[in-house]
């Protein structure tokens, strides 16, 4: 049985996470007006339609791309020495101190509560086409999985192979991978909630919602 209280206490002991914002691609960087100590926020609004705080601008092929905060936090470091220079992909630009949000805490605890189906190999993963369209239209929790079901396409070295789910029956409660992103072998792909555990999971959600206070 999962000790939610204990888990929550553990997280409360170190509620911060350091976020490193790197250049998503090459380009000439400029930082605009942010300063160390500034509070920044990620995308907000019911549908995440209000963009997060701009941190830097990356210009490549005459196209300005604004790099925004994806999470709430405080600016810890800005690499101002890079201002106006051409940076390589993956160069560290800004460092944020981020206080864990309810959703993230929930994510951490759920990862312990759910049955995790792991990537068998380092590869890119996609949902099988029919599953994918179902998830896109009505969300992952609309999909019930069962042992032996053809659920994924594993794409590796340009080769694709179907991947069957194995584990308990249940609904897909969480999806941990994104398309076009390599997943290491052993990393979780999905979190499955068996029907008999649904009440436990709901309890976790309620507990986190009530007991975790987000800090500004």
């Amino acid at each position: 049985m999962l000790d939610i209280s204990k888990l929550l206490e553990e997280i409360k002991a170190s509620p911060y996470e350091e976020l490193v914002i790197t250049a998503p691609h090459t380009g000439v960087v400029s930082f605009g007006s942010i300063k160390v100590g500034d509070r920044v926020i990620g995308a907000t609004g019911t549908w995440g339609e209000i963009p997060g705080t701009p941190l830097a601008t990356l210009q490549r092929e005459r196209n300005d791309k604004i790099i925004r905060a994806t999470q709430k936090g405080v600016v810890e470091k800005i690499h101002t020495e890079l201002e106006g220079t051409f940076v390589e992909a993956g160069t560290e630009l800004v460092r944020l101190r981020h206080f864990l949000s309810k959703d993230e805490v929930l994510g951490i605890i759920l990862k312990k509560a759910l049955y995790l189906f792991e990537a068998p190999e380092r590869a890119k993963y996609y949902f099988a086409p029919d599953i994918d369209s179902k998830i896109k239209s009505s969300g992952s929790q609309s999909v019930t999985v069962h042992d032996g079901m053809e659920l994924f396409i594993m794409s590796r070295m340009k080769r694709e192979a179907p991947l069957n789910y194995s584990g308990p029956d249940g609904v897909i409660y969480a999806v941990y991978f994104q398309h076009n992103e390599n997943i290491d072998s052993g990393a979780p792909l999905i979190g499955v909630c068996p029907p008999d555990q649904l009440s436990l999971i709901e309890d976790v959600v309620v507990r986190v919602q009530t007991e975790w206070t987000e800090q500004e």
Partner: peptide
Amino acid sequence: LYRVSSYQDANELLAVADE
């Protein structure tokens, strides 16, 4: 020598070429 996000993004290659 430059690190890029992808070999398959023309924008990366051309940005590096210019730089």
